[in-house]
Computed example of a mutant assay.
Amino acid sequence: MSNRLSEVQARISTVHELESVVSAMRGIAAARSREARSRLDGIRACAGVIGAAIGDALMLDERNSAPSRSPSGSTNADGDGHGTHVVIVLCAEQGFVGTFNEHVIEAAARLRHPQRNDYFVIGDRGVVVAQEHGLTVGWSAPMVAHVDEVPALADRITGALYERLDGGRATRVTLLHAVPQIATAIEIVQNALLPFDFERFAVPKRQLAPLVTLPPARLLARLAEEYVFTQLCEAIMLSFAAENEARMRAMIAARTNVHDTLDQLIGDSRRLRQEEITAEIVELSAGSLAASTGSVKQKRPPK
């Protein structure tokens, strides 16, 4: 009995330690999600400045319309199904995120396109899930662990992406990522990065075009590449915030399970302690009764 009670008490101590770990992980995830959200305004402001510059550069186009060239300077495909469709999928690098990676990969697997899909999967755990779903992972990289790593990752993705574009191995690029949500559901958004849509940028109404030192086509290609970089930075930051919110929800569920386990163990401990006390009382009572009976037998007079 005492062995079982000591085992239960040891488990209670272990579960209390686990509760501390779960609470710490929840706090870290909340802080990282909040920090990621705070960086979004700066990224969007940068994208706005680049977008305004693209609008100014479009004034230099002789046709006063969007150029028919891709940001890399090569002519876009006509969209008849030739070439490769690159799908950038942002997943999680670390665990304890529930079904976060599964939702993102399933959304990528449902993406249908006449071109052959080549997947850029970000996040080692996402790569494993993608392979389980039979997706062709052409390129992968670890997901960021801190918000300060976002620009470096966006730069790596941009480099790998434009290497394929310049080599004629890709004609379309789509970005898939999760966005932070208050609700428990995970929302996945899809953005078309390339071919670059110049028509979404307003050309300013003024008489004089800006003075530039680069050919207009090259200038627009450079600006478009910078704009794609900011889009990747924003998507990575949103995905990182969504990942940590998924981790927060997982830790809340874990804490609930920990409390339920603690309640059960404390109940078992009380029951075992009560049984142990009862057994000791019964044993002492039996010993006293036996001693009293023996004493009475010794005092009985002879016949």
Results as ranks from 00 to 15, higher is better:
residue 211 L to V: 06
residue 226 E to D: 15
residue 158 T to P: 04
residue 102 E to W: 00
residue 77 A to P: 08
residue 124 D to T: 10
residue 214 L to F: 09
residue 286 A to T: 06
residue 166 D to Q: 14
residue 279 A to K: 11
residue 276 E to N: 07
residue 113 H to Q: 07
residue 81 G to I: 07
residue 242 A to F: 00
residue 84 T to L: 04
residue 266 I to A: 08
residue 90 L to C: 10
residue 86 V to Y: 02
residue 15 V to Y: 02
residue 148 D to C: 04
residue 33 S to L: 02
residue 267 G to F: 02
residue 54 I to Q: 09
residue 243 E to H: 05
residue 84 T to H: 09
residue 41 D to R: 14
residue 140 S to T: 12
residue 147 V to A: 05
residue 29 A to R: 08
residue 51 G to K: 12
residue 284 L to W: 09
residue 26 R to L: 13
residue 99 T to Q: 14
residue 67 P to S: 05
residue 229 F to H: 13
residue 12 I to V: 12
residue 84 T to F: 09
residue 92 A to D: 00
residue 4 R to G: 07
residue 301 P to I: 01
residue 265 L to V: 01
residue 197 D to C: 03
residue 40 L to T: 15
residue 180 P to K: 01
residue 302 P to Y: 05
residue 273 R to L: 08
residue 228 V to P: 02
residue 53 A to F: 06
residue 214 L to D: 14
residue 61 D to P: 01
residue 123 G to Y: 03
residue 225 E to C: 11
residue 199 E to M: 06
residue 194 L to M: 12
residue 186 I to Q: 11
residue 198 F to I: 05
residue 125 R to H: 06
residue 221 A to T: 08
residue 204 P to W: 08
residue 32 R to D: 14
residue 181 Q to A: 10
residue 68 S to R: 14
residue 28 I to Y: 13
residue 8 V to L: 05
residue 8 V to A: 03
residue 145 A to M: 08
residue 159 G to V: 07
residue 236 I to W: 03
residue 34 R to E: 13
residue 151 P to R: 04
residue 27 G to C: 01
